[in-house]
Design a protein around this nucleic acid. Structure first.
Length: 271
DNA sequence: CCGGCCACCTGCGGGC
DNA sequence: TGCCCGCAGGTGGCCG
């Protein structure tokens, strides 16, 4: 499933063909997603033009005249722009058919994703209102993380994966950025120094930037809007590498479960 | 407010 | 070959 770099890659792929195109028809084959596909979505957007496409956290935002379509890809969601002649396959739940003979197709086997219609400023919608800063923005800094970590006993890995703290950091990039900044994922958030938080924030920004440049990480089913995989998998240093040797010190990479998620780390480099 | 745990759902690979 | 188990890029909700 896509984390921020994968969603950003999809955004860049669909943006040029989607903006200024008009919705001709909508096919919803499966309404039962994470939340039901908004009742009446079809009537709201048929005949309407996509004014702008943006990303906030792991959501894609399609701006229309009277509201916004929010798309989240959950764990297994895909979004592709295809020629209208492409026949739908299993798990192709939602199509936005465009007048330019393309179809924006939402595909999601596990159905943890969502397709929602919101009116008013989408940043104030229930989905987005409570979210923390963008990790690549200026507001996300080591100082800020250090300040809000005071008194927090959760593992630092969960702390940086909490969307109220910072958005977009999922399991892959949490593990990778903690390795780069040499922090053990199980350390409690409140016990980490300002200096180390500055290093961690640098690593988060660095690893996300690099992953975006590589078109994201393809582990199983993720593809860019073009259908091409992402190429960051080759650059992963700890994620899914338990039992293999550390690229830095040659120790054996460990796996452990922290708060129900697999964590990967080097027991020598990270502390 | 905080932390721990569960749920939602399908598909895949490994072990027997 | 086939079954059963564990595991998977997320995140909201419930409970103590």
């Amino acid at each position: 499933m896509p984390e921020l770099p994968e969603v950003e890659t999809i955004l860049r792929g669909i943006k040029p063909l989607l903006e200024n195109s008009t919705v001709k028809s909508v096919n919803v084959r499966q309404r039962k997603l994470r939340w039901p596909v908004t009742h009446g979505l079809e009537e709201r957007i048929i005949g309407e033009k996509v004014l702008e496409v943006k990303r906030r956290a792991k959501y894609l935002l399609l701006f229309f005249r009277h509201g916004t379509v929010l798309i989240h890809l959950g764990m297994s969601g895909r979004l592709r722009l295809l020629p209208v002649s492409f026949p739908p396959e299993k798990h192709d739940h939602v199509d936005l058919v465009l007048t330019n003979r393309r179809v924006l197709r939402f595909h999601d086997p596990r159905r943890f994703g969502s397709v929602l219609w919101v009116e008013g400023n989408p940043l104030y919608s229930p989905q987005l209102a409570h979210l923390g800063p963008e990790p690549l923005g200026k507001k996300f800094s080591g100082r800020m993380l250090f300040e809000i970590s005071k008194g927090r006993r959760v593992a630092v890995k969960n702390f940086i994966m909490d969307g109220r703290v910072v958005v977009g950091v999922g399991n892959i990039y949490a593990n990778e950025s903690l390795f780069r900044s040499r922090i053990l994922p199980s350390r409690s958030a409140g016990s980490i120094s300002l200096y180390r938080y500055k290093k961690l924030v640098f690593s988060i920004k660095e690893v996300l930037d690099e992953a975006i440049c590589a078109g994201g990480t393809t582990l199983r089913d993720y593809v860019q809007a073009t259908g091409e995989p992402g190429y960051f998998e080759a650059a992963l240093e700890v994620y899914d590498r338990q039992g293999r040797s550390c690229v830095r010190c040659n120790s054996t990479i460990c796996r452990s479960v922290i708060c129900q998620r697999s964590s990967y780390f080097c027991p020598t480099c990270q502390h």
